[in-house]
Design a binder for these strands. Structure first.
Length: 720
DNA sequence: TTTCACAATGTTTTT
DNA sequence: CATTGTGAAA
């Protein structure tokens, strides 16, 4: 306590009644949460299992658990601490029968959901071009985010999608899930909330249990999570001891159903609520904070909060803005700077490249590979999303749940067993006719000798593999059993015979999977873990540079942060702008705010004059956010409108804040545009001289002497 | 049923 | 571009 500032202390000591803690970036939020947890225990207000602690990511949950263990001096076990979904899964296992599931229901991954939805959609003959299955799945998920069960969808809402059939398909989809004794991710929240809503006895049980509720990242909660929390928090007698921690300026998940309104409305929801603001930032330098604060001030709907430097010494360097010729130069310069930092003795772990969207990572990856700098793409293709891992998991699911039709469908023809769509239909028919799951139907057909040819032989072998594995499972445990199954089913052989270059890596991954399996007591525990915690600690804790999306970087911090791609259309993203309008823009701005505030020492922003998107080059203009950064906190290294080829010479100055090069770009397109006409002779810094062959407001097409015809932003060329 | 060739067609962010 | 889906031939 002694090491905390007065606001932090207030946030911890206000234990009873509703409390909203508005915690700006780097203001010691996690510390407050964990200390508060310990404080409640140590003052005897509650036992560890009487505190419900909800986080948004598995990582946050893990960290919190570790820090609480540290504070308590013993491993934190038996706590109700986890993500919304993990906690709901735990509750739903206890009360599954109330929503027509059994205690052993399966949780579907995205692949399964999609496959199932496609099957369900088939009878409607929806125009798949216009209403793709993933699109419709998104619609359903957003309904679930808002707590809308099929019966609650109003006709108005329905008609917007899939020619008015969306609600009917949703209904059918839910019915099919129930048949399969399965639920998707959204259902975890939806079902539990439904149970709490309709079963007062169950709700009362949790009211008795949870004396205190702690919620992290409250600004990211969606409607269903809000409803769930409110049900649990609103005790019939006495005020709710709910403490929500969040930052409206870091709300960046509205596309996933998050409602900033939840945090904006907190004081209305809980009338006696107290509000504590944490505004002292101990992470970043004064310039970084100034730049971030200046930027976020352009947003309108805010609770209002100003980050103040918590350390007196922290003047630091200004935020750098670098304009470069193209995206290749950008990648090169970022990597060179990173290399230089390492040469100066900085750890690569303290450097991050934060991008807006996944496709931007490739350029850096290629460059770093050439350079030989160790790097890691965080949150890219994750371990459990790889095909071979999902296949292996499907084998395990069938082993543990023979009725898991979706898993069986996934592996029935992997490796090839001569069972295509037609064969699968036959199995389905047999299963339905005998009221059996697919595995049962298959067995039946084999016994009846109703299958012929190689598919029969292969399937018989597969069923035998499962049968023998079950014996082994009982006798020798799940690790040996799974190894046996993958061997006997021919799955491992399939990859061993595969001559493609990534096959050895896949086998390696499968080995890693069986290794992870050993950390769990039973197969069921392992599968539950995988379904909910889709991440995996990869071995080796070397010093590597991180490349990740801005979303992925939330909650992390680094000494140096590179922020490439600050260009209109990329960041702010065109798509968000199109779909979300002003709200979308404000969310992008919050994302920019998150990005800048990840840096402890230094933030370096890049924008390129042109960028390769798919196969061809696209001209791009600097992000409007650059103009919103206050001049006293940034230093702009644009040269020649930001399109210099001598960017390398500039790089010296980036880190010592050398001479400020005059800022010439305001809106280059409009500045240069009027003077150009068809037939004009022009010069381009890179392509040399040419003649304009077409022109519109922003672009011109120029036939160059050396490189042929190019389409360019008119600001890049000069008339001769 | 599988395999191959070719076209099309999007590409944010994730529990 | 890189993946995914579609259609025709083996």
């Amino acid at each position: 306590m002694a090491r905390l500032n007065p606001e932090q202390r207030a946030a911890i000591e206000t234990t009873d009644g509703p409390l909203l803690v508005l915690a700006g970036a780097g203001t010691g939020k996690t510390r407050v949460l964990t200390t508060r947890f310990a404080h409640i225990l140590l003052t005897g207000r509650a036992k560890p299992w009487q505190i419900l602690t909800v986080t948004f990511t598995n990582k946050a949950a893990r960290e919190m658990r570790e820090r609480i263990s540290l504070l308590l001096g013993s491993p934190a076990e038996g706590l109700w601490l986890g993500t919304f979904h993990a906690l709901c899964a735990r509750m739903l296992r206890r009360h599954a029968e109330y929503v027509g599931l059994t205690q052993s229901f399966t949780i579907l991954d995205t692949d399964d959901q999609l496959r199932l939805l496609k099957q369900v959609m088939a009878p409607w003959q929806i125009d798949i071009k216009r209403w793709s299955a993933p699109g419709l799945l998104g619609v359903i998920q957003r309904w679930k985010d808002r707590g809308l069960t099929p019966e609650r969808i109003t006709p108005t809402e329905d008609s917007d999608f899939a020619n008015g059939h969306a609600r009917a398909i949703y209904t059918a989809y839910q019915a099919r899930l129930k048949q399969l004794n399965a639920c998707d991710f959204g259902d975890l929240m939806l079902h539990v909330t439904e149970i709490l809503r309709t079963r007062p006895d169950v709700l009362a049980q949790y009211h008795r249990l949870f004396r205190y509720i702690l919620v992290d990242e409250y600004q990211d909660t969606n409607t269903i999570q809000y409803l769930w929390l409110r049900l649990l928090a609103k005790h019939p007698e006495g005020p709710a001891n709910i403490c929500c921690v969040g930052d409206d300026d870091q709300s960046i998940y509205s596309w996933r159903g998050a409602e900033v309104e939840n945090i904006l409305r907190f004081e209305k929801d809980f009338p006696s609520a107290k509000v504590v603001r944490l505004e002292r930032n101990y992470r970043s330098t004064r310039h970084i904070l100034g730049a971030a604060a200046g930027l976020i001030a352009h947003n309108s709907e805010r609770l209002g909060k100003t980050l103040r430097p918590g350390r007196e010494d922290a003047e630091g360097k200004k935020v750098s803005i670098l304009g470069v010729w193209d995206s290749d130069t950008e990648a090169r310069m970022v990597c060179e700077q990173a290399e230089k930092l390492r040469a100066q003795g900085h750890a690569l772990k303290e450097i991050a490249i934060l991008v807006r969207a996944g496709f931007q990572t490739r350029a850096f990856e290629e460059r770093l590979m050439q350079t030989g700098l160790p790097y890691r793409i965080v949150g890219g293709l994750r371990f459990y999303e790889r095909a071979e891992i999902r296949d292996a998991l499907a084998y395990m699911r069938v082993l543990s749940q023979p009725a898991d039709d979706l898993a069986f469908e996934r592996i029935i023809n992997v490796p090839k067993r001569g069972v295509g769509p037609a064969g699968l239909q036959k199995l389905h028919a047999a299963a339905r006719a005998n009221n059996l799951p697919l595995t049962g139907g298959t067995k039946k057909l084999l016994e009846d000798k109703a299958l012929k040819g190689k598919s029969a032989a292969h399937l018989r072998q597969l069923m035998e593999a499962f049968a023998s594995t079950r014996d082994i499972l009982a006798r020798e445990g799940h690790v040996v059993a799974v190894e046996h199954l993958l061997e006997e089913s021919g799955y491992l052989d399939m990859w061993r015979q595969d001559r493609s270059p990534d096959a050895p890596g896949r086998l390696e991954n499968l080995k890693e999977l069986t290794r992870a399996l050993a950390d769990f007591g039973t197969l069921g525990e392992f599968l539950e873990h995988v379904a909910l915690v889709m991440d995996h600690d990869e071995n080796g804790q070397d010093d590597y540079l991180s490349i990740m999306t801005l979303h992925g970087a939330k909650g992390l911090e680094f000494d140096t942060v590179f922020l490439p791609g600050w260009e209109e259309g990329v960041f702010p993203s065109q798509r968000t702008l199109d779909e979300g309008g002003l709200k979308g823009l404000e969310e992008e701005r919050r994302l920019a705010y998150v990005g800048i505030t990840r840096a402890r020492q230094e933030a370096i922003i890049f924008h390129a004059g042109r960028r390769r998107i798919y196969a061809n080059w696209q001209p791009s203009m600097p992000s409007r956010f650059l103009d919103e950064l206050p001049d006293e906190h940034v230093i702009r290294h644009d040269e020649g409108g930001g399109f210099s080829q001598q960017g390398l010479n500039l790089s010296e100055s980036v880190f010592d804040n050398g001479p400020i090069i005059a800022r010439r770009r305001k809106d280059p397109m409009l500045e240069a545009a009027p003077a150009l006409q068809l037939g004009d002779h022009v010069r381009h810094p890179r392509f040399g001289e040419g003649i304009i062959i077409s022109a519109d407001r922003h672009h011109v097409e120029v036939s160059f002497e050396s490189v042929g015809t190019k389409r360019l932003l008119s600001s890049f060329i000069e008339k001769i």
